[in-house]
Amino acid sequence: MAKSILVIGATGNVGMPLTKMLSENGYDVKAAVRSSTNVEDLRALGVETIQADLRNFFSLMNAMNLVEKVFFAVPFVSNFIPLSMNVIKAAEEAGVEHLVKISGSGAQYEAIQLARWHRSIEREMMKTGLHYTFLRPNSFMQNFVNFNSGTIGDHSSFYLPLGEGRVSYIDARDIASVAYHVLTEKGHDGQAYELTGPEAISCAQVASTLTNVLGKEITYCGITEEESRQMLIEEGLHESIVDARLELYQLNRLGYSAAITNTVTDITGKSPYTFEQFARDYKERFSR
């Protein structure tokens, strides 16, 4: 029986477009979902959905039955590492051949907590003897929708402690495109790919682009680290996640997230999305 590709995190920013690409190009793709997940979009693609809980090793093993390759994106939560370890152990036990992990930009340097978490998971993957590939993207453009569209819609502003720091934000659709090629082509085993967008931009430039696209003045309000901490706590984030986010913001603010790579183009043959293209495609999400 032919083996398939399993996408863990199939309803996410990267997982959904990846699953769509695999399905539309004729690959046997399965989506691991929680029982509470809205799966209508996946089923509309004709994708088989399998209930699996990242906290439940045996449910993951069951989802990986007759699976050759696994892509996984684990949510950034306080038990991020144990959840990831469950995926790796289940892949070993189930006889998966190739694991593809969404990691983080600069994970190899372990300069901040988030990088250290990602690198510890990468090391565990390297110990297994399985084929593996690490995708190390910079911050997602979609984060402006996920975290800032509320205040942009309500009062035309967004709040971050990034000062004038420039970041080479990447569209999650480009990450999905890279993942598609990694999963369907040879030559990616043992590789770690640093993924960025085509330009490094500041939050002031983000605001200017959104102003032009949305047709109304959008303002970037720079805030202090302590103000940001309070906002994140009020969102209900675990203290460890708050600290990790603030460390990442500090790197952004200091300009350490501005490097640009050509990896997206090298692997996919296409230029990555600019922030303006992203903003136009997601215009309705900012206008809600």
Rank of each mutant, 00 (worst) to 15 (best):
D28F: 08
A200H: 05
G215N: 08
E97M: 04
K270G: 07
L251V: 07
N262K: 06
Y220L: 02
T211V: 14
Y256L: 05
L248I: 15
V167Y: 06
P17L: 12
I88V: 15
T151F: 02
F144Q: 01
D154V: 15
F71C: 04
L22W: 08
T268G: 01
L135R: 02
M126D: 08
R229E: 15
Y159H: 02
L162V: 14
N86Q: 06
T219D: 01
T261C: 01
R55T: 14
I112D: 02
E276Q: 05
S168P: 03
G15V: 14
A94P: 06
I5L: 04
Q205W: 08
N262T: 15
A115E: 15
E185N: 07
L45Q: 05
N138G: 01
R123Q: 12
E40P: 01
S120D: 09
S271Y: 10
Y273W: 13
A192Y: 12
F275M: 03
V77C: 02
N143A: 04
D243T: 15
N212F: 04
E276V: 13
D53W: 07
T133N: 02
M61C: 11
E92R: 02
D53Q: 02
D174I: 08
T49K: 00
R136N: 12
N262I: 08
S105K: 08
I223G: 01
D28P: 00
S23I: 11
T133S: 03
L214W: 10
G46V: 10
G236D: 10
F286D: 05
P272Q: 11
F72W: 09
E68S: 15
P137L: 09
S228A: 15
I241C: 01
G163Y: 11
